[in-house]
Design a protein around this nucleic acid. Structure first.
Lengths: 156, 156
DNA sequence: GTCCATGCAAACCATTTGCACATAG
DNA sequence: CTATGTGCAAATGGTTTGCATGGAC
């Protein structure tokens, strides 16, 4: 995953101004390995910036996504963001339903999927959901305070 | 995929009233093999029912989904519906980006994914996107009028 | 006749946009 | 100093809800 500095540098190189809010965003995504919704981010940022507005968060998430420092994934509950994965080789993810951390799976099923007949493959998705070692322990017990907003609803 | 009759019967058995609109919905999903958004459905139904309201469409889609006659999948553009797949064994799908038809993939990559360490797998998603034989031919040319709203934007 | 289904209007939620002021470079 | 970033308010788009009427059984 990109580090806080890498994120800031990329933004700076592309002519974006490094405001205090953006520094905080970079830090958040540079250090937090899981997926966050716009709301999660808003709530987190809100602790530090009292007058914070939702639209600024959205704007920055979008800018960062377009710049390529953030990834965006569609879950059932909505869109979530995380720092871009710096793995270079193609891979997939196991995603923890509680803490939302992701673990790379280097195995890609496409190699083994006999693209049938005349189907022209353009893209594929392979994602595994479950509970990671950390979160597997306290199965459904007390909310074991994940780094940021982790609800154990199991929806995907 | 479920047939029109199977859909209607299931609804009837569960005490739902078979209105004309619901018959049409059943027919739509019984005959159309691809994914449709609520809007697609609304537009299609609108041709036949002039006073149609969006909320009724939503309500019926929801009821049918909860009843299990429809499946629901999250795409980047939003949620889409299709008739429930009648394949009984676990399988995945190849989805045509143009006509939205789906083709089953019986191969499941989970067997081969060495669930690493202590990760407790709960669910997985494996989806392949591309163009099917039919749609592959006229690559990006004129809109070859897919059964219902097929835009070739390739987004997933 | 009873209760569910429908249309309408309004509420709701997430996201986007326009504008004036604040501030990084 | 200038252009970009921000907060505010309002618009937008998709979806849901409350209510009274209409229709299936």
């Amino acid at each position: 995953m990109l580090t806080t500095e890498q994120i800031i540098n990329t933004m700076s190189e592309h002519g974006l101004r490094i405001t205090d809010q953006r520094k905080t965003l970079a830090k958040l995504f540079g250090e937090h390995p899981g997926y966050l919704t716009a709301k999660d981010v808003y709530e987190y940022m809100g602790q530090k910036y009292s007058g914070l507005s939702f639209d600024t968060v959205y704007r920055n998430l979008r800018v960062m996504y377009e710049l390529g420092v953030l990834e965006q994934v569609v879950f059932e509950e909505g869109i979530k963001f995380r720092g871009r994965c710096s793995e270079d080789h193609h891979h997939h993810h196991m995603i923890c339903l509680q803490c939302q951390k992701t673990y790379p799976i280097m195995f890609c099923p496409m190699q083994l999927t006999d693209a049938p007949e005349d189907f022209q493959v353009v893209q594929h998705k392979f994602e595994v959901f479950g509970y990671c070692g950390e979160c597997g322990k306290d199965q459904g017990e007390k909310e074991s305070s994940p780094s940021i907003g982790g609800k154990r609803d199991g929806r995907v």
